[in-house]
Write a protein that binds this DNA or RNA. Structure first.
Lengths: 340, 340
DNA sequence: AACGTTTTTGGAAACGTTTACAGTCATATT
DNA sequence: AATATGACTGTAAACGTTTCCAAAAACGTT
């Protein structure tokens, strides 16, 4: 392994000067820079990151915790983030957590074991943050939830305005004459600080505002955000309520399951029941019928979160909380009842 | 930050002894161990990983390179691997690469920058390995391709027997009376050392053996492994050849695109054209109709690769090459022409 | 009691960097 | 000519561990 010492010897300069060249400092003569850079090039020298980090007491890692496995939506954000971070020369260390694992607990553990310089939470349960985030001291960012109300100074958050967006989703149904709407997805307990709950509340709020009756016991079926669970929940919903003409699935993955469940019961979409999803994964363009959905801006989510985190890692800044735009995508899964 | 020095001071022992306790060595008295462990506990001390690694000249990272973005199949393997590795206390640093990026080149770069103790390639192009893998010296494993023929002693590989499995896929069609079969997916160039190419060859071989005519120019449409590309390729195929009764899509994602393309042209599946995919992602159970496919054993792939890599990291062993079982899944997308 | 063994311990060097500090040298200023 | 200034460079001390080596302690054997 070639070290800075070898470069010093080979170039005839001291290790101090070599170090200065490596770190692009100004106080080095042009001549020294040239010579040393040549030697570095020739020797194919790479500074040992451990030594560097030891001295600087940081690691060059950013830890990413993805809440939920097989979550196409979050994985899409992860990919975008990784790609974007790479342009800064930053790498991510990824952990996928199932939905029951406490991500804050896990993050704390990762911090002590690996000492990352920043943490990105892709999804998460606000409850866990409220309870235990004070133990985490590195700059962090939570994506897909808002931590504005928690008041941690090292935790930023970026999300779609879920409540508003969910409202737009049901609004889309309402405008097309649907007055009996079912909602599928979200945590069983209606737990506070959970994505599904916020979307549910936004939807219910809009229903109320529009004067549409909604009986949560009969018209809501909770389920995890997976195709299978969407399928099962749809089956339950059909048993509970036969009058529904429109369904809002709280995630596209759930919607795919719903689609299949309705089909298996020979319920036509959109002729018999209309369906709108949430997230805007690629897949909605290829379902039969194409799925209407609310598309979150994953690029913006990824970019904003990374920009903010990097800024806060390098300069001590306060956390910020932001939202990104969304769009309702039409699809073919919604019937306009007004046209009858 | 509490350091080993603090623990030494607080416990009344020397740094050396504390270090020995931390590393669970035998040559420490029971008494010392107890006392020191108590102090460590009380102080909530975590050894600085950078210092540790500096001394041991390794990092505790395993680098994973995922070839291809938005690849549900590989991401599923990634999740399984990460989860399994975590049980060993190992973490992964992930990079997603688009299909054009040279993963071996990238790995070499990552090695010099971050010095991982092992590398996992999820997908990859054999050509790149043949050309440049000799530069990589850490234990590595390639999943989804076989590197048996390359003869690198530090590169294991695990894969499904793609050729055989693809053969089974077309066989499934052939047995149901299909004699005019189209194949969609795989690299444009029919490039050597590419997943699609191997599957294509396996399929063509089986067609030949069964005495089914196959004109690669007319009955094969190459495309990238994405839904959109599957859609477009299906459109091309329909223009080129009107007589096809069965299609083998070289990945499930492609199949989903094909499904949608056929539907848009009012071609019924399986009545007009039958379709079988490859990979066995969750999704195939929720398409309309449910998609027949060849299911690769992702659990086995993940587990074998990790087991082997960990073994080779800790003991110097030669690389091995293995395959995992596969299964043809029936679905609803295939018509039995014999029944007419 | 004197000696060997074995077990346990402390001291100190090493790992490869960064950086504060002090030094050298040329040039400009008086 | 003496001095101040500034640009550059080298030296050495850190950073928090691990581990080699030798010292000390404990024990058993003669």
């Amino acid at each position: 392994m070639t070290t800075i010492k070898d470069i010093a010897r080979l170039s005839g300069y001291s290790i101090g000067t070599v170090s200065r060249v490596i770190n692009h400092r100004q106080d080095v003569s042009e001549e020294a820079r040239q010579i040393i850079e040549k030697v570095i090039e020739d020797e194919n020298f790479q500074p040992n990151s451990n030594a560097k980090m030891l001295k600087q007491t940081i690691t060059s890692n950013i830890a990413v915790l993805v809440k939920g496995t097989q979550n196409v939506f979050l994985e899409g954000i992860l990919e975008r983030m990784q790609e974007y971070l790479r342009t800064f020369g930053e790498y991510v260390s990824v952990s996928f957590l199932d939905e029951f694992t406490n991500e804050v607990e896990t993050a704390a553990q990762i911090c002590s074991e690996r000492n990352p310089k920043g943490i990105i939470f892709l999804g998460g349960n606000l409850h866990f943050f409220e309870e235990g985030f004070s133990r985490i001291t590195v700059p962090s960012v939570l994506v897909t939830e808002t931590a504005a109300g928690l008041g941690f100074d090292n935790l930023s958050s970026f999300t779609t305005d879920d409540s508003e967006a969910a409202g737009m989703a049901v609004d889309y149904l309402i405008r097309r004459g649907h007055t009996h709407i079912g909602i599928i997805g979200g945590s069983a307990s209606g737990e506070k600080g959970e994505v599904g709950t916020r979307r549910l509340q936004g939807a219910v709020k809009r229903l109320k505002e529009s004067g549409i009756p909604f009986d949560q016991d009969k018209q809501f079926c909770s389920c995890r955000f997976a195709m299978k669970d969407g399928y099962d929940a749809a089956v339950r919903m059909l048993k509970k309520d036969q009058e529904i003409t429109g369904i809002f699935a709280l995630s596209d993955t759930v919607a795919v399951g719903v689609l299949r469940a309705l089909r298996d019961r020979d319920i036509r979409i959109p002729e018999d029941i209309s369906l709108i999803g949430y997230d805007g994964i690629e897949h909605v363009k290829y379902t039969i019928p194409r799925l209407a959905t609310v598309k979150q801006d994953r690029d913006a989510l990824a970019k904003k979160a990374v920009d903010d985190l990097l800024l806060r890692i390098n300069y001590s800044r306060s956390a910020v909380h932001g939202t990104v735009p969304f769009r309702v995508l039409a699809g073919e899964s919604i019937a306009d009842l007004n046209k009858h």
